[in-house]
Design a protein around this nucleic acid. Sequence first.
DNA 1: GAAATAAACTGATCCGGCGCAACTATTTTT
DNA 2: AAAAATAGTTGCGCCGGATCAGTTTATTTC
Lengths: 234, 234
Amino acid sequence: MIQSNDTKGISHCSVFDSETSWYDLLTDDEKILINENSVSIIFKKGETVCKRGAFASHIYFLEDGLVKVYLEEKNKNLILMLAIRNNLLGMAAIFDGNNKLPYSITTYTDSIVRMIDIQVFTKLLKQNSAFSFHVINLLNEKTAQMYGRFFSLTQKQLHGRLADILLCLSNRIFKSTSFELPLSRADLGDLTGMSTESIIRMMKEFKDDGLIGMHCKNIELLDIARLERISEFG
Amino acid sequence: MIQSNDTKGISHCSVFDSETSWYDLLTDDEKILINENSVSIIFKKGETVCKRGAFASHIYFLEDGLVKVYLEEKNKNLILMLAIRNNLLGMAAIFDGNNKLPYSITTYTDSIVRMIDIQVFTKLLKQNSAFSFHVINLLNEKTAQMYGRFFSLTQKQLHGRLADILLCLSNRIFKSTSFELPLSRADLGDLTGMSTESIIRMMKEFKDDGLIGMHCKNIELLDIARLERISEFG
DNA sequence: GAAATAAACTGATCCGGCGCAACTATTTTT
DNA sequence: AAAAATAGTTGCGCCGGATCAGTTTATTTC
């Protein structure tokens, strides 16, 4: 279900998750073409799938795993989004005359990535309007989430940003109120735009306040209503 | 021309400007359909074209003028981008089952907006793959610029952010090193994620340092090389 | 053209959150 | 199993910028 805070608050989630069937929109011939021009690659935890600035040769379909999509420059990192299975990544590189990757991708867990030739993918977009319309929908969904995160990171302070990311992880990635985080504290920092130290301090504060339970990487959301209030009020 | 800092720095610009010919990609019948299902409306300076959260009834083609695309909540504002003539806006609302506007739009100058029925626009996207492919390109260009701004606002401090926005205004909107700003200081704040007071102080500093010339709304970039260095180093 | 309103500016204050340093715990390497 | 490297944690000082309060300058409005 689509998040309900469309008219109310600005959605702040940073995960993109679609159980969609772009593949089903292709004709049989097109499916064959995709199959013949793609390979499934297994990436181990922590491996880099692609780097920003490189010429885009493939579209990445994440068949399984968890990855971060991010920008890095000097010692500054910004995680644009997390992606889980069934996600098409790298489509942002489809842009006439300048198809360089606008972000890097690295895995958090062992992941299976189907690498689809970008020329073939583009060709199908150009010839199959049901497919390209669906892609427009996917891009727009991502963009809307992006806006929410943009707002969160630029307008809220630490408490609100941490509440945002915790709710997001729970709702969108792990689909449970308790989960084991494959991200480091530093990654949580890059995701929320704060320093590693601040992440640690804030999480401790949340724990002491009874908002979350925490043992190392294991996190449990204990008071979601209050977390949502913290998210709303910044 | 596409900005050259794709592999080097992360592009930070906040304006979207395309001299594109989406209209030319339509068939004669489709052009007629668009014409019959759209109207050109004149908005005066400062008028609101649409508000976030409303059901999206139209796609907005900005035939002339300058507008801000923004998020507002409580007293927090974030300008997502500025748009000038020849821009298609509101496409982000095309998303199955949830076509609410993800942002608000307000004019800075008198503007002419062609309001295109969203059902018709969507219909054409679904049937004309050359058109929808072009739209994908447009969306991706916007997204790439978004990423750059996201990075700028979350990772750089005031000097860098102000340099970014000044370069952007010069390169993308006014296409000149000197221009008369239709934005207030408060709007510059919403654009750079800083307070109005900080904008004023920073601009004074830039002026005193000989980076820019400034008389009220008239601004001239005097030392672009140094501005770019400031942009790069945060 | 006077009054009212909004925008631009200035100075003083205060605090959120970063960066540093030091230390501990955990994981990886050999 | 020891060594090395990485990740997590804590305390402290400092400073970038927000906020507040007040003044000046434009712009509307009637």
